[in-house]
């Protein structure tokens, strides 16, 4: 079965690069399906959403077990992401393909910017009024080890607004929107970077799941594409995450940026041609 094997390999490659870059497989599998398998974007988005659910389910288990996920922050912000994802997935069935391709190109550029500008922590000692009322602050192990340090959370409305956009993009484009989620928690709400990453991982599955449920219920998931894609991306992501501690990701960063920019150009060109 050449086609099935090809799809599995394509998906495994996307999952592998997604895990190494920290951007997730969805960012790479949608353009891969469009460019190499000539699959329409709506079908690629449906398949990708399912694969995002599968990979995040495996990845976030370890983070929750290790205690980095801030469950309260996740649940408070899921209200925004799920609203956005359901709306986005609904709209994906209505709006023209060229609009989706153009949005995808813009998201690629945002991901490239995120990859280049990743910065360190800016931990605040205490939460603002709303975050304190929602008990969003927490504790993390200190860098020096031994004891824990408290961190505060601020600007919940700003973070929620960005999460709404992240959810919308996830439902529309079949991506996890991890870069946007981490930006919302790290830059806007000032959570520690590792807590932002772990909480984002926890949230990605629920956000993508919300979008996937709309696609599945509508009958927009092509099983013959989605099944090998989900399995391939999961296997690739697993291999990528195993390799991650042994490679110098910094040295690969510019290569990821180049890939993202190339995808953005290709998707932008498709959008213009389709229009």
């Amino acid at each position: 079965m050449l086609i099935m094997g090809g799809l599995l390999a394509l998906a495994a490659g996307a999952g592998f690069i997604g895990a190494l870059s920290g951007l997730g497989g969805g960012v790479f599998i949608v353009p891969a399906l469009l460019i190499f398998a000539h699959i329409p974007i709506q079908i690629a988005v449906g398949a990708s959403l399912i694969s995002v659910v599968a990979t995040s389910a495996g990845a976030s288990v370890a983070f929750v077990r290790d205690g980095w996920t801030n469950l309260r922050v996740a649940m408070a912000l899921e209200c925004a992401t799920v609203t956005g994802a359901v709306t986005g997935a609904y709209l994906a069935g209505i709006i023209p393909a060229w609009v989706l391709e153009l949005l995808f190109a813009l998201m690629m550029l945002q991901s490239a910017y995120f990859t280049v500008t990743k910065v360190g922590d800016s931990i605040l000692p205490r939460s603002d009024k709303l975050a304190a009322r929602l008990q969003l602050g927490g504790r993390i192990p200190a860098d020096t080890g031994g004891h824990e340090v408290e961190y505060g959370v601020v600007n919940v409305p700003g973070g929620a607004l960005l999460m709404l956009v992240a959810g919308l993009m996830s439902g529309l484009l079949g991506i996890g929107s991890g870069a946007l989620k981490v930006m919302a928690m790290d830059y806007v709400m000032h959570l520690p970077l590792k807590v932002s990453s772990a909480t984002s991982n926890f949230m990605i599955g629920v956000t993508a799941g919300a979008g996937a449920l709309v696609f599945l219920a509508r009958g927009d998931v092509a099983t013959v594409i989605a099944a090998p894609v989900a399995l391939g991306v999961t296997a690739g992501a697993l291999a990528g995450s195993r390799l991650l501690p042994h490679v110098n990701v910094q040295s690969l960063r510019m290569m990821f940026v180049a890939i993202l920019v190339l995808i953005a150009i290709e998707m932008g060109w498709r959008a213009i041609s389709g229009f």
Binding site: A89, Y90, G93, A210, L213, F215, R218
Partner: peptide
């Protein structure tokens, strides 16, 4: 109470997605 309400909203959102997909 606050988080029961927030989590219930998320659950309802997920179920609403199925309904929306079915009727939409």
């Amino acid at each position: 109470g606050i988080y029961i309400a927030l989590t219930a909203y998320v659950l309802i959102g997920l179920v609403a997605g199925v309904v929306l997909g079915r009727v939409g």
